[in-house]
Amino acid sequence: MIMELDYQSEVPVYLQIRNEIVKGIGRGQIDFGEQLPTVRSLAADIGVNTMTVSKAYKLLDQQGYIVTDRRRGAVVCAKNQMPDFASNEGHRKELILLASEAALGGCSREEFLDMCREAYVET
């Protein structure tokens, strides 16, 4: 799985790592139960401080996408253990914001739903 990072972006690198990993799991590029690279190894490959990767992994762990274990390192959770989307109020708010922006930007309901369908990959 190829992770894309923009070092010039205003989005912090740890958040970009988190987003890319979630995207990778969602699109099936990272398998459920797959072991992620160690914090030190990934930090060296990206060229950032180990704290940055550690922070991203901690966030993923808190949100329930991965489990960190002293022996196995960071492992992607099983499909049935993934955090529930619908019950997350934050996601609903983000979706409302995105839909409003789409409507303001001249995007019809159908066009918006098509975009959602295209972005959604069955796992």
Binding site: M1, I2, M3, D6, I30, P37, S41, D45
Partner: peptide, 12 residues
């Protein structure tokens, strides 16, 4: 490329 690419499957 404007965004840096990192292969997560790479194992040191």
């Amino acid at each position: 490329e404007s965004r840096h690419k990192i292969d997560l499957k790479l194992d040191r």
